[in-house]
């Protein structure tokens, strides 16, 4: 089975995969990349409201075959009050 390398970027932190994982074909590697993003997302989520994860899949020849990004922007609604509502409160 050919090897694929899954390099990840979490914010500014880049992690180079030097060992690789054996997978049957490109399609399995693309699916594995998406699965990896979903799993990393589950791990990161409790830590904050912003996250940007990406994974680049490289084949054994060193050619990038797939890139996937995942981004989260969350904000609490109570610190972003609706201006109309706050006017009413004031008056």
């Amino acid at each position: 089975m050919p090897s694929y390398f899954f390099h990840t970027r979490d914010g500014w932190k880049l992690e180079i995969d030097e060992e690789g994982t054996d997978l049957p074909d490109d399609q399995s590697a693309r699916n594995a990349a998406k699965e990896l993003l979903a799993a990393l997302n589950r791990e990161k989520l409790p830590n904050g409201d912003h996250m940007s994860l990406s994974v680049t899949v490289q084949n054994a020849q060193g050619v990038d075959i797939y890139v996937a990004n995942l981004r989260l922007d969350g904000a609490s609604t109570d610190i972003l009050p609706d201006p109309k509502l706050s006017k009413q409160d004031g008056g």
Binding site: F6, T8, E15, D17, E19, T21, L23, A32, A33, E35, L36, A39, L40
Partner: peptide, 12 residues
Amino acid sequence: GLSTVHMNKKLR
């Protein structure tokens, strides 16, 4: 219950 790629990354 992990994917192999995820496991490899965390084991590393």
